[in-house]
């Protein structure tokens, strides 16, 4: 068996490698090249060097989108994970209707982002207009918190499921031992449960971090970047640069922004993975 695998491994690896090359490597390299060009379609491409990057890095709207996205990512990652973990703790106790609650909390995740954004824009606008406050599209602060609310509502259920799985996989012996040693529930949580669900925390942090950073649909549907690009996140900014403008130069600008964006996401995720992985314990 071992020998056969050693002999035939290329056959098993080949499909994945091929898919990876076609689906990621090739488009990525092409994207890299295009970020140095001026183009409308891929048939007519003129090389312009680093001009696009020069524009992208000096564009104040792109910079604003970056800081807005960063703030959004930090706030939403904290909110989603703390709330999801709390709910997971509650729903792993033996209370009635646990399964029903789990299902209900998970359900928002099954609805697409654009639909959610649209529904929430109606809901929030109704509330804001009752309170005689400016509507979502008129005020960047409400837009920001609207997005946070929407993302929490959508993501908490999903993260909760991952945390529940993590909590349930903690061997009962550990909890019993802690109990016998006289640890109170607060100590059990910090000293036993959290170190043991560290793999789940890694996954959840990773997912919320990248999801928030790459957020697009909800941003488009809820605020559309209004007022005047003040709630525009990076992905939407790239989209608007690429599609919302006429003239060949804009495609290159958009592509350059997309490359910067991609590098950012990779770097942030790598740092985060390294940071949380070091805290994991082996069971």
């Amino acid at each position: 068996m071992e020998k056969a695998i050693k002999k035939y491994w290329p056959i098993f690896v080949a499909p994945t490698v091929a898919a990876f090359c076609i689906g990621f490597l090739w488009p990525f390299l092409q994207g890299l090249y295009l970020s140095l060009c001026k183009f409308t379609t891929l048939k007519k491409v003129t090389f312009v060097g680093f001009e696009n990057f020069k524009y992208a890095l000096t564009d104040p709207e792109f910079a604003h989108a970056f800081w807005f996205t960063a703030a959004f990512t930090v706030v939403s990652t904290i909110f989603i994970n703390v709330i999801a973990f709390t709910i997971a703790l509650i729903l792993t106790r033996k209370i009635r209707g646990t399964n029903l609650f789990r299902t209900v909390f998970f359900m928002p995740n099954l609805i697409g982002g654009v639909v959610l954004g649209y529904i929430w824009s109606i809901l929030l606008n109704c509330v804001l207009s009752l309170l005689a406050k400016p509507l979502l599209r008129l005020d960047a602060t409400y837009g920001f918190w609207g997005l946070i609310l929407l993302m929490c509502w959508q993501q908490i259920g999903y993260m909760m499921i991952i945390y529940i799985a993590g909590l349930q996989s903690i061997p009962n012996d550990y909890l019993e031992a802690a109990y016998i040693d006289g640890a109170n529930s607060w100590q059990t949580l910090w000293r036993v449960k959290i170190p043991n669900v560290m793999p789940s925390i890694t996954i959840c942090l990773f997912l919320t971090l990248t999801n928030s950073f790459k957020l697009f649909d909800q941003n488009l549907a809820l605020t559309g970047g209004e007022p005047a690009h003040m709630t525009e996140m990076l992905a939407l900014n790239i989209y608007n640069t690429f599609y919302g403008r006429s003239g060949a130069q804009w495609k290159g600008y958009g592509q350059a922004k997309a490359v910067i964006f991609c590098v950012l996401v990779i770097v942030i995720s790598m740092i985060q993975l390294r940071a949380t992985r070091s805290k994991e314990v082996q069971q």
């Binding site: 994207g31 992905a235 997309a258 990779i266």
Partner: peptide
């Protein structure tokens, strides 16, 4: 790989 798959969608806007 997962990360790459996640970000892959964003690089190819076309």
């Amino acid at each position: 790989m997962m990360l790459v798959a996640c970000v892959g969608c964003n690089t190819n806007e076309g």
